Simulated assay, not measured.
Amino acid sequence: MRHPLSSIHHRFIPLMFAAAALSLGSTPGFAGSPQVLGWVEEGLIFPEKVAVKFKLDTGALTSSMHAENIELFEKNGDDWVRFTLELQDIDTDEKIEKRLEREMVRDIKVRGAGGAEERPVVMMKVCLGNQMYEEQFSLNDRDKMNYPVLIGRRTLEKVGLVDSSKTFTVEPSCTESAQ
């Protein structure tokens, strides 16, 4: 014997599936969703607008940037750091070398296989996708690393999600005035 509601139930199942499929494809449901980026993306370092590979690293807390000839000094009673930004632009293949000075935000102790070391942390502007970020970067000689810029979790929480199966999903498109 069939249950009296079973025929009604069978009529609503296709309607429920259709409604679910439509809601998945509609933009308003995903309007507030964060962007999803690959584990390696092209980014720009400002003010030089140097295009380099950024590794989006969920294992690192603080972002890191390649820097050479790092010197600590005092300016107006504050701790500052002078360093050489030496990078290869992946778009033009041009080597960019620029001596910069930034106020030191803090220093961090980084532990690795080779022991522990202290690194200065400064504020730097970078572009990822169409968004400019002014974030903290530890300075370190990353010459032996594949990626001159590492984006850590403190920055990633503002940027979006990382899909480890993807690379180069967005092109940087910021202007310095897009702050």
Rank of each mutant, 00 (worst) to 15 (best):
E101F: 06
M145P: 02
V122F: 10
S6N: 08
L72Q: 05
Q88A: 12
L56H: 09
Q88N: 14
Y133T: 03
F137G: 02
E103P: 11
P34C: 05
L150T: 03
T62P: 01
F168W: 13
A67S: 06
W39Y: 15
G32N: 14
K53M: 08
M104F: 07
L100V: 02
E42Q: 14
I13H: 10
L161G: 01
R106V: 01
K75P: 00
V110F: 06
L100K: 14
D141W: 10
A31Q: 11
M124I: 07
R119Y: 06
Y133H: 10
S7K: 14
L161M: 14
S26V: 05
N69S: 11
G115W: 09
A113F: 11
W80Q: 07
V162E: 12
E176D: 10
G32R: 12
M1W: 07
K49C: 02
F137V: 03
E48M: 06
N69E: 12
E48S: 07
D163K: 10
N146F: 04
E48R: 12
L128T: 02
L128W: 04
Q88V: 08
Y147K: 03
K98N: 12
G114C: 00
L24F: 13
G115D: 06
S64L: 06
N140I: 12
F137W: 06
V110A: 09
F137R: 06
L22E: 08
K55E: 07
H3P: 02
M145E: 03
Y147V: 00
K109H: 00
V105D: 05
H10Y: 07
L37I: 04
H9K: 10
I45F: 12
F83W: 12
K144W: 04
K125I: 01
P14W: 09
E74A: 04
